[in-house]
């Protein structure tokens, strides 16, 4: 490995001159395309890279009148305080478990749904289903939360109404900490899986029909076609989406949990974001909040890089 790298390095230096020439020519050839890329680059610089310097308040004793740059440096004191918080490890654990559960249940669902819809031949039926399942994506959690509270209520909720009608005893979906996380996961998946299905549907459309024709000639059944053509063809999409999902593992869904949770389920559902919101942000402790944000981004970044590396080792393309 090491030797190879060295050789490559040498080759690189020798070729640099010729390469840079090539590069210039390449740019010139596609100048209009690059020209059109400019606004996007400008947008990212202005709205995503420049504001990043504000993250340094995580290492400062942020003082409004002194401003972000003028505040005093305090090193890792904010992080120290964060790690000393009694509940910190509990909320990290909750964040990760909720996120993983969502990944396990939520990741395959849209793939399966897309595959199923792909087999549907009648367009109107397909479109109707597609629209129906992605509509919830557009409703905000604040509204959906209110609806869930009513639907899942113990004494006049629809769901418990059905359960009691079949002779069961009502379940405290939102009050009982045994059920709360399940409710969170299922409702989140229900809200988002239709939207995620669209990505896979698009990938499915890109498969060359000739492959299927050839398979049919060879006598492959529908099932065999799915296993040997459809899935391998969308595999790279699946991997990219998976990597991105892993990169967001520390995001367990603040909005949803914030709308639905209460002290009765803090033990299982209090995540980093909600805890910091209650004890930090709502109190105007911005330095602390940004320390948490930085900590989360770091973990997400590590996960993203690891997942990408793994996928490359497995022979897939990865995101970078």
């Amino acid at each position: 490995m090491f030797m190879e790298a060295k050789v490559l390095e040498k080759k690189k230096t020798r070729k640099t001159e010729i390469r840079s020439n090539n590069l210039c020519r390449y740019f010139l050839k596609h100048k209009y395309l690059y020209f059109m890329l400019l606004p996007a680059i400008v947008y990212y610089i202005i709205f995503h890279y420049v504001p990043m310097y504000g993250a340094i308040i995580a290492f400062k004793n942020f003082n409004v009148s002194k401003g972000i740059l003028g505040s005093d440096w305090i090193g890792l004191a904010n992080f120290k305080q964060l790690f000393q918080m009694d509940k910190f490890y509990q909320v990290i654990w909750n964040t990760l478990t909720i996120s993983l559960k969502r990944l396990i249940v939520g990741f395959p669902t849209p793939i399966i749904m897309a595959l199923l819809l792909n087999e549907v031949k009648r367009t109107t039926f397909k479109k109707t289903i597609q629209t129906a399942i992605y509509l919830p994506h557009f409703i905000s959690w604040v509204i959906l939360g209110g609806m869930l509270v009513n639907l899942l209520s113990l004494d006049n909720g629809l769901v418990n109404g059905i359960i009691t009608a079949f002779g069961g005893s009502p379940i405290g979906f939102l009050t009982d900490d045994k059920y709360f996380v399940k409710t969170l996961v299922v409702s989140m998946v229900w809200k988002e899986f239709g939207w995620n299905t669209i990505i896979y549907m698009a990938a499915l459309l890109g498969i060359d029909p000739q492959l299927y024709e050839a398979a049919i000639v060879d006598g492959a059944s529908r099932w065999k076609q799915t296993i040997h053509i459809t899935i391998p063809c969308i595999m790279s999409t699946i991997v990219v989406v998976f990597i991105l999902r892993l990169g967001g593992l520390m995001e367990a869904g603040f909005e949803q949990i914030f709308v639905l949770y209460h002290p009765g389920v803090y033990k299982v559902a209090d995540i980093i974001d909600t805890y910091v919101y209650r004890t930090g942000l709502a109190e105007g402790k911005f330095a602390m909040a940004s320390a948490v944000g930085l900590f989360k981004s770091l973990i997400n970044f590590i996960l993203l890089v690891l997942a990408n590396k793994m996928s490359r080792m497995a022979g897939e393309e990865g995101v970078f």
Binding site: M85, G264, A282
Partner: peptide, 21 residues
């Protein structure tokens, strides 16, 4: 209390509910 009030109140809230339930 301004500095630590929210954190300790949060602890109390959780224990109160746990004891109640």
């Amino acid at each position: 209390e301004i500095e630590y009030g929210k954190i300790v109140e949060d602890l109390y809230n959780q224990y109160f509910i746990d004891m109640l339930q």
